[in-house]
C-alpha cells in the first residue's frame, strides 16, 4: 500500500500566507520519514494537512487507503496532556472519544503504558511527571488506537540531550514493534539521520522540498552508531543539503 501527499499546497489559515509551495512527496507504508528544515519552512503545516487538521487551499493529498478513524496518531511539540486527568485517562482519551468500552480502553491504555515504561505512573497526574515521562505518555496516547501513521511535530525539541537520545531509541523500538509509518518533523540533522529511513529536506518561505536522502545505515540503530564514521558521513551530507536549502550553498558543506 502506498499513499502520496501529492503537491500539497497549504495555506496558513490565520495569517493568510502560503505556507507551502511545490512539495511533491510520496510516503511508503512503514517507512520512517523525517521532514528536516529550518523554522518557517512549513513542516508543521504539512503535518497538519496530513492529519486533516488543515485543509489544503490548493493541491491534493491522496491516500492509497484512506486512514480509518484513529488511524492517525499525532505527537505535538509539547506533551499536550490534560492536566486535570491522570496519566492513564490521558492515554485512554482517543479510545474514550471513539466510544470504546471502558474495560477495553483501560486494558489498551495499560498495555501502552507498559510499553513506554510508565506502568507505575498510570495514576499520577501530568504535573507529577518529568518532561521526558510526559512525552512518553503523549507517545502512548498517540499509539493507543493502533494507528497506521504516526505524525510527530518536533516532539523531543524541548528535552535535554540524554532524555532525547533515550526517547529516540524508545521511539525506534516502538516503530519496529508496531510497524506504523512515521512522519517526523525536526530541525536537528543528527536526530533525523539517527531515526530515519529517509529524509526530506525542506526550504523556507514558502515551504518547498529541496532534497531527499535515503538513510541506508544499518538497523537497529544504537548508541555506537552515533559516533561511527558512516553516521557522520551521512550527517555531513544532510547538513550540506540543509545549508543549501537555506540558501547558503557550498560554504558550510
Amino acid at each position: 500500500m502506498r499513499y502520496s501527499a501529492g503537491n500539497g499546497r497549504g495555506a496558513d489559515a490565520e495569517a493568510g500566507t502560503a505556507a507551502l509551495a511545490g512539495i511533491d512527496l510520496r510516503v511508503a507504508r512503514g517507512e520512517f520519514l523525517s521532514l528536516l528544515g529550518p523554522s518557517g519552512c512549513g513542516k508543521s503545516t504539512l503535518l497538519r494537512l496530513v492529519a486533516g487538521l488543515l485543509a489544503p487551499t490548493s493541491g491534493r493529498l491522496s491516500w492509497a487507503a484512506a486512514p480509518a478513524p484513529g488511524g492517525i496518531g499525532f505527537v505535538f511539540q509539547e506533551p499536550t496532556l490534560m492536566p486535570w486527568a491522570r496519566v492513564a485517562e490521558n492515554v485512554r482519551l482517543p479510545l474514550d472519544l471513539a466510544g470504546v468500552p471502558r474495560a477495553e480502553a483501560a486494558a489498551r491504555a495499560a498495555a501502552l503504558l507498559e510499553q513506554v515504561g510508565l506502568a507505575d505512573f498510570a495514576r499520577a497526574y501530568p504535573r507529577e511527571l518529568s518532561g521526558g515521562m510526559r512525552m512518553r505518555a503523549a507517545l502512548a496516547r498517540a499509539l493507543v488506537t493502533g494507528p497506521q501513521v504516526l505524525l510527530l511535530d518536533e516532539p523531543f525539541a524541548a528535552l535535554d540531550e540524554i532524555t532525547r537520545f533515550r526517547l529516540n531509541d524508545d521511539l525506534l523500538d516502538l516503530w519496529r514493534q508496531t510497524g506504523f509509518t512515521a512522519l517526523f518533523v525536526t530541525h536537528s540533522v543528527f536526530e533525523s539521520v539517527y531515526l530515519s529511513s529517509r529524509i526530506a529536506v525542506l526550504g523556507p518561505r514558502p515551504g518547498r522540498m529541496v532534497a531527499e536522502r535515503v538513510v541506508d545505515l544499518p538497523w537497529p540503530r544504537t548508541a555506537a552508531l552515533r559516533t561511527s564514521p558512516s553516521f557522520n558521513a551521512v550527517v555531513r551530507e544532510v547538513s550540506g543539503l540543509l545549508a543549501s536549502a537555506m540558501g547558503e550553498g557550498e560554504r558550510t558543506a
Binding site: 497538519r48 486533516g52 487538521l53 499525532f74 505535538f76 509539547e78 499536550t80 482517543p94 472519544l97
Partner: peptide, 11 residues
C-alpha cells in the same frame, strides 16, 4: 493543541 487533538479524534 488539546483542541486539535480532540478534533483529530473526531470529538
Amino acid at each position: 493543541n488539546l483542541r486539535d487533538l480532540f478534533r483529530l479524534y473526531g470529538a
